[in-house]
């Protein structure tokens, strides 16, 4: 019972953070679209997953799509890797990878448990 309540609390927190991320990402996209010299360097990044359950992977993929700069393209057949398109990545994929591993995944793990 306590764990269930705790998970609901985590879910609410996840939704709040998600709305903030959505606003930030939309403002970024708006800036990229409306600035006259459009010079973003997109990049395809692979991200190894630690979440295992179906619900967890779905939530991570949806959150990635609506958070700054990134968009989920595909999940590998063995469900261990995510392919992500980053609009404003530049030359390195490490920043994107770390952002997902430390920002999104722990929050989803606290909700789904696995």
């Amino acid at each position: 019972m306590i764990t269930f309540l705790w998970r609901c609390l985590c879910l609410v927190w996840l939704l709040i953070v998600f709305m903030r991320d959505l606003v930030v990402s939309s403002v970024q996209v708006a800036r990229a679209v409306l600035s006259p010299g459009y010079a973003a360097k997109p990049r395809l990044v692979t991200i190894p997953l630690t979440v295992e359950s179906d619900a967890g992977i779905t939530m991570v993929a949806n959150l990635i799509t609506l958070t700054p700069g990134t968009l989920t393209v595909d999940v590998s057949a063995d469900r261990k890797t995510l392919l992500v398109h980053d609009l404003l990545a530049g030359d390195s994929s490490e920043a994107t990878r770390e952002g997902v591993r430390q920002g999104i995944e722990p929050r989803v793990l606290r909700v789904t448990g696995r």
Partner: peptide
């Protein structure tokens, strides 16, 4: 201008 991780090819 898009760059890709080498691991993205199997996808």
């Amino acid at each position: 201008k898009t760059q890709a991780d080498p691991e993205s090819e199997p996808f």
